[in-house]
Simulated scan of single mutants.
Amino acid sequence: MEHARLVPVNFRISQKAQIMLGELTETASKSSSRAMVPALFWDEEYDDIKKETVVRGVAWGWYYRDEVPARLLQDVDGITLIFAVSAKQSAHFQGKEIDYHDGRRFFLAD
């Protein structure tokens, strides 16, 4: 993470998604006995067999907060997070809102 570049956030987070992220981050922190911070990713990969890119979309992970350079932390609608995408991938998020569908998944909405 030392060489990671900051990609400015360009999206917002719905209230439902904020609540769920808060709960998940609290659970991760309690289970590891260390403060955690959520990291937002864009999940896609090239399928060599099908010869196409498979897009899964929004994905979350967590890092130990004390191991993340402060310059990578950003605040979005009251949630401190790492926007762990490339400049090219950030285009998927431009002007969108990350929402949460009860009990199922995070997704991008207009």
Rank of each mutant, 00 (worst) to 15 (best):
R5S: 08
A4M: 12
M20D: 00
L108D: 13
I49Y: 13
S31P: 00
D66I: 00
D77G: 09
A70V: 11
T80D: 15
D99F: 00
V85N: 01
V37C: 11
S29Y: 08
E52R: 11
E45N: 05
V7R: 13
V55E: 12
L40E: 03
K96E: 11
K88T: 12
S90H: 00
V68S: 07
H3I: 02
A28H: 09
E44S: 12
E2G: 13
F41T: 02
W42G: 01
D75C: 13
P38G: 10
R56Q: 14
G22A: 03
V37D: 05
R71I: 05
G78E: 03
I19L: 14
A59D: 09
K50G: 11
Q74N: 11
D77N: 15
W60D: 01
A39W: 02
M1H: 15
I13Y: 04
R34D: 06
D99Y: 02
G78K: 00
V37A: 08
E44Q: 12
F83C: 03
T53V: 10
A4C: 11
M1Y: 15
F41V: 00
S31N: 15
G61L: 01
P8R: 02
E2L: 11
R12V: 03
L21M: 15
D110I: 04
V76M: 06
L73N: 01
Q89K: 14
I49A: 11
S31K: 15
K88Y: 12
V54F: 09
V76L: 07
F11E: 05
W60Q: 01
S86F: 02
A91T: 07
D47C: 12
D47I: 09
I19P: 04
Y100V: 10
Q18E: 08
Y63Q: 09
P8N: 03
K88G: 09
E23G: 05
E45T: 02
L108K: 09
F106A: 06
Q89L: 08
